[in-house]
Structure formats: C-alpha cells, structure tokens
Design a protein around this nucleic acid. Structure first.
Lengths: 355, 355
DNA sequence: TCTAGCACTCTACCCTTGGGAGTGCAAAGC
DNA sequence: GCTTTGCACTCCCAAGGGTAGAGTGCTAGA
C-alpha cells in the first residue's frame, strides 16, 4: 500500500499526523462498535500497512497524552473525555442528514400550529431520528408584551385572568381578591387596561400602574380602582418557571448495553428534578449554535458517561430557547450534531411562521 | 400454641378455612419479601403448629386450584394472578394511610390553583408515597359549556381564538381563514357569539349555528357572516385528545429487582404511546371507586407482571377522570389501595373548591 | 388426618480451567 | 532511527464441576 508521507513531524503540537489519523480511526471505530479497539483491529482498519506492534507504540503515546485509555490490562483502548473533545473539535467529519430525515422532520414540524404541540413534536422527532433522549426547552420570553387582557368572575372571590402576550401566547391565572367583583365591573377594568397598556411590556404595565396610582390617588373612580387592583394581582410574579419537554427516555435504556440500572435511574431522576438539567441548558443558551458537552464537562456527575449536544434556536437574531439530545459519550457525533443543528433551525423557522 | 378450630369444613367453596389462612399468609409474606415462600417459612409464620409437611399438602391443593405456583421445582410458591385476585377480593386487610401521608398530601394538593399544576402535583405525590409509577388522567369534559370566546387577528390570515369553557378552563386555537379579518370585525363576531351562545354546550353551539344559517341565509349581514365563519372553524373537532400525567417512572426501576431491562423498556414505551394506556383507563372510568387490574387482566401483554390500581375522581356525583398507580403484581395492595382511594377523593375535593 | 423420613431436584455460588485478546518489552531487521 | 518480530505476561470470560441449601413429592407410620 502507498505509505503516506508521515515523516513530517507536526511542529509543536504533541500529536504526529499518524497519531491523529490512528486516533481518529480509533474513535470512529469505537463509536461504531462500542467495544475497546485493539492494535490489530486498528492495523487492519488503517491503510497504513503497519504492524500491530507499531500501532501499539502510537497507542501508548496517545495514552500518555490522555486521549485514550484501556479499561483493563488486556483490553483495547477507548477514548477518554478529552479524547472525544479533540475528536469533535478538530477531526470530526459531519455527515449531513439524509433527505428522508429532513423530509420527515419537515412534514412533522412545519404543520404544527400550537406552540406546545410543536415543541413536543419536535422533541419527539429529534429523539426518534437520533435514537437518543431529547430535550426541548420552551422559549423563555425575556420580554412579554401584553396584547390583551380579560377578566372573568368565578365563585368565592376569585377571578380568572386571561392574558394574551407576545401576539399569540395565552396565559391564564386565577387570582384571589378581597371582595367579589361583578362581570361588568371587570369588563370595564379590562377595557381600561387594554386601552392604556396594550403593546407594552408587562414589566412596564406594573410600573405604569404604580405611577397612575400616585397621580390620581384621590379622584380615582371606582372603575380605575378595580382595574388597578386586578392588574396588580395579575401581573405580579408571572413567570411560571421554565419548562421543558423531554422525550425518548427509553432510547437510553436500549443503548446502555451495560445496563447499569442504578446509574440509568439516576439520570432519569435528574430529568425529573428538572432544575438540574435546566442549569446545564442555561449554559448553552449563552452561545448560539451547536454546543457539545462531553462526559464530566457538563458539570453533573450523573452525566459522566453521557454527552449532551445542544443548540439554541430562535427567529431572526434572537435566541428563544435551547434544544438538544442526551446520549452515551460514544454517540455518533458526526450524525447527531448536524441533526441537532437542523432541528434547531427548523424549529426556529416554524416559530417564525407561527408568529 | 392454641390451635384454631380448623375442623369446620367450608361448605361448597373449594378452599378450606385453613387453606385460606395459609394462602393469605403466603401472599402477605411474598408481598413483603418478594421471594418464593416455602413450606417451612409458612409453618413458622402461621401460629397453627403444623409441620412443614402438612403445609406442603395444603400448598399442593392451592396449586391445583391455580392460586399459587412454583417458579421451579425446588423453589417456594408465589401467588398467581388469580391468587392475587382472590386475595384482594376476599381477604385483604386495608391499612389506612398514616396521618403523615394524609397531612403531606393535603398540604400539597389543596394549595394548588392551576389545573395543570394540580394534576401534576397530585400524580407526583401519589407516586412518592406509594413508590410506584402514577398516572392521573385529566378530566374529560363530556360536555363543555362555552362561557366566552374572543378572537384576535394574527398575520397571514390566521386568527387566534380563545375559548373559556366550563367556567374556568381556557383553550386557545389558531385558525386559518380564507381572508384576513379586522380587529373590530372579529370583536363584533365574538360579541354576537357570546350573547347568543354563552352557557350552551359546545356541541349545541355548532348545531345552533347551522340552524341560524339556514334561517337567515339571504339577509345575513356581514357581521353575522364573520361570526359564523369564525365559529365554524373554532368549534370543529375541538377535543385535542385526552392527556394524562405520568410521574415516578423511576420508581419502577428501583423495584424491579430482576431488572429485566427490556421488559421495563416496553412498559415505559407504553407510557409514551399513550393511546394504549388510555384504553385501560377508559375501562376504569366506567365504574366509580377503586379498581384493581392484576397482571394480564389489564389486557396488555406488557403489563403481565404489573398491576394497575385505579380510582375515578370527581366532584359531587360526576366522574371527571381516573387516576392510579402501576407497579409490580406484588405491590402492597393493602397500603396502595387506600392511598389511591384517598388521593382520588382529595383531588375531587380540590377540583370542587377550584371551580 | 397429620407427621416424619427420605430421595430427589433445582438453584446459587464458588472454584478451577483454558482460550482468546491484547499488551509491553527487548532484540532483530530494514 | 523507525519498524517489526517474538515472547512472556495479564486480564477477561465462558464453561465445567462440585457443594450447600432450600424445597418438593411421596410413602409409611402414628
């Protein structure tokens, strides 16, 4: 076989060209098979026409650099977290999603009109195609602009408030009031609020009300009083907390061939204790584009054998949220990364057309 | 020891009094330990002062009756599905929930105001206390009475419809229209609908509209046209499909000591393919009160090693939905059954105070 | 009708064993 | 100086065999 011109030493970086090649092959092989890769296998895989012994020497170097390790004395080598990191950063060849996948995803996502359903479907689809667990964090509206508000009296001094924010999202809250209000009273209050504050940020609404109160204090008529009272209770501490959609847990069970059930349980538990996962996703929302957290990098011990691939999504220039997948560190990054990217873009587009 | 008066034959039923006693002990023991119960153990447990050999004879009878079986030649006996059935039907002594459990549940459930949160919390709580997976099916409103409707124009010939039904529930839908409508136009249409149909069943609204159309066909003014057009699209095929909340998957993983991971995966998968589970819950909603499905009784093969304990819940006389738990057939029925019952009643009460 | 005794069966566990895979090292080859 | 060969060594894993424990069914005797 044509030996490559391998004698050119790579200048300062510790890794020779040959080392890189073999390392790349090793990672790819391990991702494909899931079993430690030995020198003989690697010798066959590479077209370098080198004996296993030579490969062994290179592998020893790679091990010294902390890129690979052997699970035990006489097993092959597997990539370490830093190894995966190097791989995805400098040598991964992304495999574009197949036309089928794109088609399938498009059909499913584009047709959704309800925000909740859209997110759920997106998560589902991503999970099915990647065969991993998928997370979609719902858009966190940094500013909510009020479009319309309605009040409906319920029994027992309670009022149902319906807010339409950001042009299309509907929120509703039950508020407890000191006395009971009549329907017409509430209607007037809502009318006033709609006229005075429609199109304004919710935060501003609260401020505006306070100002209003100061100005008109004495000569406030009854309607105004009602309006202010209602609005105060309605707009206080809105944010119900970030939510996210998780689908495809079960895919993790299928993959984890070691089926370390206790570990798996802990990961699932983490999904439920949503707060933990949220923090991870928060890290991701800062930078736009695809981000990869390998093993311990995520900062969560339970995820030490798992990697997380995330991408922000949004419309235009704004990041609305984060989505991604969780799977074993040896997931097929070259396939998963473009898929996550694609999904994020599609969701962004779908959201845009929804507005 | 004081031998019980066991010589009285039970009349026609195939099971002697002694057989019943020993069977009950066996089931309780197996539920507690999870391991096949042998004749020696049972001899010690019972205060009957009988030798293991005698117990063996009884056990052989019980096996002939199909109430118990041995996993293999020289293992003890475990209850069969019919065995559990007999146990829960005729000999189970319910253990009332502890004051702590009641207190805890009450605190958590009673304080909720949002329907979605209430259901989620209920499910969570039930799952935590029973240490099983819990399902709460959301109330299926067999009749939805319309309280109020609002329309908001969006871009691209789409209109956001907001429905308030059943006094407090808010639904919103995006509908696509042939042409674009102005805000005032839509407002008039909503006003008309609200006046004409508030308080009526949604089904009736549709019917009423059709009648209206027939009557006024020719002299329909523009406002009416708009109203009818909007309403048609809004009220068609409303039912977004029954939803339910599942929590505590992870508890199943902890219990299934055999950790037959593939089986577990199938069960989880079934949770995701919600339709399957729904059908099971549908069976339960017919009869009110607690129902127990043991193993294959549920009609789902994947659930063959699991039992489902459900109860309907509702306010006043009406059944609104079903909740329950899923766990191994050897769950502690005597504890779980009253807990499911209690939860159902508490949820019913919470819903009542919410309306 | 109950009990004691006994032979039998099956599982779970431990230990050993041998093969296979892979390594590391030293010496020989190009 | 890099590469290869040869070899001893390590470790895992699966298979086999032996043993103890638990429990059974059956039969004969109280």
């Amino acid at each position: 076989m044509t030996a490559l011109p391998i004698h050119r030493k790579s200048p300062s970086v510790a890794l020779s060209e040959r080392g890189q090649l073999l390392f790349k092959l090793l990672v790819e092989r391990y991702i494909a098979d899931g079993e430690p890769v030995g020198s003989r296998t690697l010798a066959r895989d590479s077209r370098l026409d080198l004996s296993p012994a030579t490969i062994r020497n290179v592998m020893a170097d790679l091990e010294d650099l902390g890129l690979i390790r052997s699970p035990h004395t006489s097993a092959g080598r597997v990539p370490t977290a830093p190894g995966y990191r190097l791989f995805v950063d400098t040598m991964m060849a992304v495999r574009e999603p197949t036309a089928t996948d794109i088609e399938r995803m498009n059909a499913d996502i584009a047709s959704q009109t309800d925000l909740g359903v859209l997110l759920a479907r997106t998560s589902n689809m991503l999970s099915e195609i990647t065969k991993l667990a998928s997370i979609v964090m719902v858009p966190r509206p940094d500013h909510q602009s009020l479009r319309q508000v309605e009040f409906l009296p319920l029994s027992d001094n309670r009022v149902l408030a319906i807010l339409v924010v950001n042009e299309r999202e509907v929120q509703n809250r039950i508020i407890h009031t000191a006395r009971s209000y009549g329907a017409s009273e509430l209607e007037q209050a809502a009318n006033y609020l709609n006229q005075a504050f429609a199109g304004r940020e919710i935060d501003q609404v609260r401020e505006g009300l306070v100002r209003e109160m100061a100005n008109t204090r004495a000569e406030m008529d009854r309607m105004m009083q009602t309006a202010i009272e209602m609005a105060e209770k309605t707009f206080v501490s809105s944010r119900a907390g970030d939510e996210f959609v998780v689908t495809g847990h079960t895919n993790l069970m299928a993959i984890d061939e070691l089926s370390n059930i206790e570990k798996l349980r802990q990961v699932f538990e983490a999904f439920n204790q949503k707060r933990d996962i949220l923090h991870l996703l928060d890290q991701a929302i800062g930078a736009s584009g695809v981000q990869i957290f390998i093993g311990e990098e995520s900062g969560y011990e339970v995820l030490s054998d798992y990697s997380v691939v995330t991408s922000t999504y949004g419309t235009g220039g704004r990041n609305l949220g984060v989505l991604g997948v969780i799977g074993p560190t040896r997931m097929a990054y070259s396939r998963v990364v473009p898929l996550v990217d694609l999904t994020a873009r599609m969701l962004g587009a779908a959201l845009k057309s929804l507005t």
